[in-house]
């Protein structure tokens, strides 16, 4: 197992949060296309369909996950020692916090759209 700190300081953090967002976006977009093709809900339901609900719940879950990681990164960045390595670590962890946070913002704001519009029209 990797120690938690190593993960939070890993340069992968520079891409992780937004990569998760992209993956979720692909899943969301694909699922929506699939369901609209296979079993479109009646138009009269408007935005109150179970596919909208599922997309919203998924978005909130991904957002929560990303916020959790952002918080971890942020705290890791704050807790560094003062050796040469920890300057780099802190740099990566702070950026990681920013990327995770931004990923959360984008995920949530896209998710909110599914409260407003009918899925397949």
């Amino acid at each position: 197992m990797w120690p938690r700190e190593t993960l939070l300081y890993h340069p992968m953090q520079l891409a992780f949060g937004l990569a998760i967002w992209i993956l979720w976006f692909i899943v969301k977009y694909g699922a929506l296309a699939l369901f609209c093709e296979q079993a479109p809900p009646p138009i009269e339901q408007g935005a109150f369909t179970w596919i909208n609900a599922a997309l919203m719940v998924g978005s909130v879950a991904v957002t929560a996950l990303l916020l959790f990681w952002a918080n971890n990164c942020w705290r890791a960045a704050r807790s560094g020692n003062n050796d040469a390595d920890s300057e780099i670590n802190a740099f990566i962890a702070v950026l990681g916090a920013g990327i995770n946070l931004l990923g959360a913002v984008v995920t949530l704001s896209q998710g909110l759209m599914s409260l407003l519009l009918p899925p397949c029209l």
Binding site: I43, E44, M113, L116, L117, P118
Partner: peptide, 12 residues
């Protein structure tokens, strides 16, 4: 924009 776009849809 969103409500406006909604009203432009071919709703019943």
């Amino acid at each position: 924009g969103i409500p406006m776009g909604y009203r432009m849809l071919p709703l019943p």
